[in-house]
Design a protein around this nucleic acid. Sequence first.
RNA 1: GCCCGGGUGGCGGAAUUGGUAGACGCAGCAGACUCAAAAUCUGCCGUUCGCAAGGAUGUGCUGGUUCGAUUCCAGUCCCGGGCACCA
Length: 946
Amino acid sequence: MEYDFRRIEKDWQKKWKESNAYKVENDFSKPKYYVLDMFPYPSGAGLHVGHPLGYIASDIYSRYKRLKGFNVLHPMGFDSFGLPAEQYALDTGQHPAVTTKKNIATFKAQLDNIGFCYDWGREVQTSDPQYYKWTQWIFLQLFNSYLDQEEQKAKSITELIKTFEEEGNPKPSTSNIKPFTAGEWKNFDEKTQQDILTQYRIAYCGYGEVNWCEALGTVLANDEVVNGVSERGGYPVVKKTLRQWYLRITAYADRLLNGLSTVDFSDAMKEMQSNWIGKSSGAEIDFKVGSRESGVGSALRVYTTRPDTIFGVDFMVIAPEHELVEQITTTEQKTAVEEYLTYVKSRSERERMAEKKITGVFTGTYALNPFDGREIPVWISEYVLAGYGTGAIMAVPCGDERDHKFAKHFNIPITNIIGSHYNGEEANPTKEAILENSNFLNGLVMKGAIDVVINALEERGIGKRKVNYKMRDAAFSRQRYWGEPFPITWKNGIAYALEENQLPVVLPPMDEIKPGKDGEGPLSNNEAWLQSPFFGGGRGESSTMPGYAGSSWYFLRYMDPQNEKEFCDRKISDYWNQVDLYVGGTEHAVGHLLYSRMWTKVLFDLGLIGFDEPFKRLLNQGMIQGSSRFVYRVHGSNKFVSAGLKDQYSTDHIHVDVNIVDGVELDTNAFKKWKNSEFGNAEFILEDGKYICGSEVEKMSKSKFNTVNPDDLVAKYGADTFRMYEMFLGPVEMSKPWDTKGIEGVHRFLRKFWRLFFPPSEASSNARGQGEALIISDEEPTTAELKVLHHTIRKIENDTERFSFNTAVSAFMIATNELTDLNCHKRKILEPLLILLAPYAPHIAEELYSLLRKVSPPAAGGALEGASILNAPYPVFEEKYVVENSKQYPVSVNGKLRTTLNFPLAATQEEVEKLILQNAIVQKWLEGKTPKKIIYVKNKMINVVL
RNA sequence: GCCCGGGUGGCGGAAUUGGUAGACGCAGCAGACUCAAAAUCUGCCGUUCGCAAGGAUGUGCUGGUUCGAUUCCAGUCCCGGGCACCA
């Protein structure tokens, strides 16, 4: 019988579906394992071969864990709110709900084609009101909570109100609030009270500088802005002050950082996250300032990580936006300063980043070194950022490269406090130097002096120890339509939470989706909805939540997807607990992964779940790049010249569809028909009778004609071949260009594997060299056969556990080759092998397994017919089968391999040495000398050392 | 500029982390079966000397540690990724 993968795969996919084979029960009696893929955004383009890489890996691992006896949760869903659907709607007039639904159907069909073991009964879609009801509910928890600084724990805002009522707020944790007493609190009006609470809420609405993208008509979070342009679309982004919703993620900075040590992420991923959080510790120091004429006035507060260099401060720099700019500018410098500020405003964010010029202006004012009273000029420069630290720095040119360049540029004298470590040409940021010219710090090593200075500052009350973070609070509103509406109602300029029973606040259908006035979202055009009765007499919020809202908690909903009373039952989340294995790309390093980690921590603090890190282990799959092909058209003609000859002509290069190129050789007939025969009258200048294309590795995308659709490959070779080939390409973590060529090899292997069951014979073998009859013997296996099996069990188990799927595929190939050579058709070997293969190639394994079970008796017991390989007992590795009777050891002399000798296992060390020394080849290389010692390496080889 | 990865045949990639480098697959060459093709099978396949047996050499480059280095150390050159005025 032929390996008819089309029939087999169709049959089994149907049977699995009908029998609900992948349904997952919340069976608390079994050990659990949670495998999660980053759910896709259902774009209109459908899947290309790059997408399933991670899905295949997680599917293999899920099936493997299931065979190992775990209750495995391996769900799939769709991140179906988001910008592209809305952009598409603006362009085509199609409603996002319609296109999203269509795209999801395409995605599901494509995924099912590959044979994944998802329990679709647990599917979630973030744009489904039954789902986003709970996104809104969790938002309300964020809105109604604050972070208790002392306990570093989120608590209900009502507790904070109670504290204010009883004790007031003598020491506010933020400088935005003045201290108040309990009595004062009670006398504040509603607006004042709410404004104060806003400073504490974890989700809050406030004015702030945001990234505004005019082209997209919305604000963006910091991680959605790359090099001054929007991540999506590459449109310019400007800073703008607007009323926005925020998540107070900064309050969780320390916990997000510390939590990294408890999870198994790659070092690169951890580093990206900790860089983004950007914790640094140092000190805030107050410098008295005032112009010479006016005398000493207010204090200028700076932040520094290097207080030890305090005596090397030669000038101060404040950001152009700093609040003291006006106050400290002297009359004679006024014009110069104003000119400079105008110049700074004229420069866009992008220009500032692209060309880093040394610019600045002197304010005319001097600050006093708090220790020795030395006068230090205060400058203004754009290289100091208003948003970080205090927006002002103390500049130490001998130790900081930027300060050094600035000092050289403006001829500011440089004080050397590090002796020979400073060469006068370049700053040296060392911490190891012994301090000079540094008053009471002279003679101290710099890194030791840091604490000495901070203590001195704190004693004199002129500074304090301070930790700073680069991370900012995350902008949480978008001026868009296709997102979750806020469960918020505005009354008299105050945001109030809606009651739980008002949820979900359903996104109203709108005929036309276009931006509103004054930077408001499309919902602002729907005043009727904004004034709906469920907003309780207030006005609804016209912006919607960002794409990351729904994806920050979806892994919890899979556990209990149909629950109408809660986002997830606590007993159920206690059972499934953390995601044991999370598979996805690195592109979400500082977005989704940080937000979901934060939400988890809040939910944990509020006692709603029992763990504070969502993902125990993260596996980053690499990107599959496209391998583009080019043809070269001779300028102004319809002649196309082969790549090797193109230098003789002046040519344009044109992307050509990779699917009509075999390797690098163009199918010229297909090319003429391509794009509705746009090149129908093309002529070719060939080399060696062939047209050779140019090639380049690029991102896979439709516009580059380098995408390969998995559906085509599945149709041609089958899902099992496709799955194994994607794994065989190389390690999952690695990025690599797609190359369809090798898929034949994997397909050949599966056919060869099939022949172990349907061996060719004289009497009957079909066109593909496969026998017509299933041949299976119940004979006892030979030692050699058992050795192959148990080697393979060990190898597959090890490789699967460490996600080395490529080497596992190789191991299957080796086993198949060896068993073919041994002419082995024994059930006791082949049945366990099928079970090993099942996670990788489930369809062929299930087919052959069911065929075996139709002929008695099964090797491992159990039901004869109707048993599925999905629940088969995983084969157990037994060491005894791979142990040898006599052993061959390679023997080297001085590390160089010289020969291989056979030793009886029972031989004593003396006998072994005698055998070695008597050997003619060894004697030749010993050249008559006596060896110093003989090294036995780990049961692997023997080395004779001269 | 700073911080991570990584450089192994014609190609994708193995090597249980200090112990026979190049597994497995692709491509290539030669052969068997066939009228022929497809399919299948067998052999060869880093470089170099040699008819061969067998040597020598070889994991970006230069050194070092070791009986022994793709693996460890120092320096250096490329490639990929991340961050980038964060004081």
